[in-house]
Design a protein around this nucleic acid. Structure first.
Lengths: 137, 137
DNA sequence: CTTGACCTTTAAGCGTGCTTCAAACTTAGC
DNA sequence: GCTAAGTTTGAAGCACGCTTAAAGGTCAAG
């Protein structure tokens, strides 16, 4: 499969695929007589894994460590450490998001709860105060 | 308070604070006779809010919309929309993280479950297969 | 045999969020 | 008065993850 086809199947731009190759995320593709890259069908799955991992918050550098071009270069403990660290990262992120969401939701409720007889500016002050700003101005 | 002091109290670099000013996240600071910026104590809280919002995944542009320098420029509906959109974003992110975490954890279990009599390379193939790669090589 | 789609490379550009640098001025302590 | 720390500005630089551009080779259809 040539790069355009792979791009279509993976949903990535050809430029992104070449970029991954230069960055070592993909092994240098086999070339045809014309110099064109020629990919095995499998590469679609590899690209999907890369996209998944990115989604999960891995940087390309991390993905490169996790998904080495040379499968035999797997260093078991290092890989496991990376994975476990990432789970911890995700958990930390989840906790932060939960807090942030609660924070924003309470902000929404606070703003919505403006008494009908309160003006906008006054309500704004009230909201600002709740954020920890003292300026009632 | 001068910028160095504000930096200490907020935990940000002076360069970041000036950067926020150029980006419109902070109103242009009042200047002393010497031209030095002079901040009210309140700015510490504003910076904390910015940091919080960033933590929650808001870009500086978004924060700028949410936290206008001029409090009277609040456009109620627009703000509420932004907040509600962000809650939705956070929820989407939470769902993705949950999936990613499950994915990684099952990967960890899979790798750990290597039968004692299976070699590393063979286990690697098994793991790769589970990721959707067919190459048993 | 030309047109147009697809491929190649290297290099430069982009958006985000800052940091660093250079050159100059102010201020604080001794 | 001297020195060191703090501040000013604008411009350039950095890291990440790509995209875009330029200049050209390849290939299939008509």
């Amino acid at each position: 499969m040539r790069i355009g086809e792979l791009a279509k199947r993976s949903g990535l731009a050809t430029s992104a695929i070449r970029f991954y190759e230069t960055k070592g995320l993909l092994p240098p593709a086999k070339r045809g007589l014309n110099g064109y890259r020629d990919y095995p069908a499998e590469t679609v799955a590899v690209l999907a894994i890369i996209a998944d991992a990115q989604q999960a918050g891995f940087s390309l550098e991390e993905i490169k460590q996790i998904l080495p071009a040379d499968i035999s270069s797997w260093r078991h403990e290092e890989l496991m450490d990376t994975l476990r660290r990432k789970v911890a990262d995700i958990e930390a992120m989840q906790a932060r998001l939960k807090e942030s969401k609660a924070h924003i939701e309470s902000l929404i409720r606070l703003i919505e709860a403006k008494p009908d007889d309160m003006g906008c500016r006054e309500n704004a002050s009230r909201v600002m105060a709740s954020l920890g700003l003292s300026k009632g101005k």
